[in-house]
Design a protein around this nucleic acid. Structure first.
Lengths: 237, 237
DNA sequence: CGGTACGTTGAGTCATATCAACCATAGTGG
DNA sequence: CCACTATGGTTGATATGACTCAACGTACCG
């Protein structure tokens, strides 16, 4: 226990993740089990957590930082499927369906991550219906988002999608006091979310800039006109 | 009970669906409950089972026929997400996540369908861990497929995707003795899977035809050279 | 017989990908 | 300290895949 304190391992029972996330219906005892069995890890930007087609012996719970989850397509081009941020869990799909990972995961922003052995997830799912239902809801929610994504990519133009991606990023990571987007991505990464070429993202971003919708400082993107983005993206919500 | 026999309602306990599908771990008693509570329905081609954004009071189990599950995008253009065939269940996502449906469902080929009230699904998930795990696996599997789909649409050309869709249809619905694809779709429906314009599908199909990869008899598609399709689609499996 | 839905083909356009050159920055090693 | 290299960003020129629009053919149906 001292050791945990020494290197600043987060204790599960006061981890903010518990209050809101998928773990919210676990008992004190169950949380303690996770706390005991989990393996805490620090990852620098660029580190790969796991790769496609590999078998994984557990799942990851993000305490801090940002992870990108992606598939590798033609010519090794990455397609970013989603981001994981504090409170999110990743690789659970592979554990539950007992299949090899269908995605890879890489650190975007230095991260603190807990690795939790697979048997805990399956045990709890079997023994705790409330938890099970929570995991199910999470999966179903992700499935719904994936379906949305499919429709968008299939039907919208790159321009529309880029605007939409910016809106999603604003939603997920927020803006700081100066309206700067709180996640920093390379142009290539942006392209790999939108599903387009790096050059196209660059061109469209500078178009948005000349239209006074955003401002650009290197990788930092300042959002000026969110309404305009909504209009471009064809999202009316 | 006589009534069931009269109009040919399938009994759940000898429904082939039980052996392989998500229901395989239900007890005799549980199956009986479904059999008692389910509502059997016949649907003609074109019938809509449910639509996007509606609340659904249960889920559907397909006994016969084919259903298309789709989202409605820009200008009402459909994006087909998947097909449901005998043994598949649909709308369970909406029930489990307690969200409105994120898709619509329409009959492609005259269907026999059982409608099962929502509470049965949630009850069984809560009480029967094996069933719960089975549902979870199903969801996770669909999620994996959705991710695959996203990557394909984002990175492949229409030509590649059309070839891949044909392969998937062969996999899912099989070929008859004359190598004809066992599902009949309009050109527009094909386009709505691939995520392209109807005209593009038509042009590419006749290209495949002149390359002796397929033959066309109206909506019937005869598969001549599956290897060529694999090559075109960039799938090496 | 007209109507409706589906299929086909052609022509023109445009968005986006590709290819290539170039700049900026930062880290590396001699 | 200076090449050296790698990585990321930008811009321009060019090519082309795919969409749109439009016309027309076909088949089935009441």
């Amino acid at each position: 226990m001292m050791k945990q304190k020494d290197i600043n391992i987060p204790f599960c029972d006061n981890c903010p993740v518990n209050k809101t996330g998928v773990f919210r219906h676990l008992s004190k005892d169950e949380i303690d089990i996770i706390n005991f069995e989990k393996d805490f890890r620090l990852y620098k930007r660029g580190t790969v957590l796991y790769t496609e087609n590999s078998r994984i012996s557990g799942f990851y719970c993000i305490n801090k930082g940002i992870i990108k989850v992606f598939k590798t397509g033609i010519d090794g081009k990455e397609q970013i499927i989603r981001f994981a941020k504090p409170g999110d869990i990743i690789a659970y799909r592979s554990v539950l369906s007992n299949e090899p990972a269908c995605t890879s995961a890489k650190v975007i922003e230095d991260a603190r991550v807990c690795f939790i052995p697979a048997h805990i997830l399956t045990d709890f799912v079997n023994k705790n219906p409330l938890f099970s239902m929570e995991v199910m809801k999470l999966t179903c929610h992700e499935l719904g988002e994936a379906n949305e994504y499919i429709t968008d990519i299939a039907q919208k133009t790159v321009r529309e999608r880029l605007a939409e991606v910016l809106l999603i990023l604003i939603d997920d990571f927020g803006l700081d006091n100066d309206s700067y987007l709180q996640i920093s991505l390379t142009r290539e990464e942006l392209a790999n979310i939108v599903g387009t070429a790096t050059e196209s993202v660059i061109r469209l971003l500078s178009e948005f800039k000349s239209d006074n919708i955003i401002q650009l400082n290197g990788r930092k993107i300042k959002i000026i006109d969110q309404k305009a983005l909504k209009k471009i993206s064809n999202v009316f919500s």
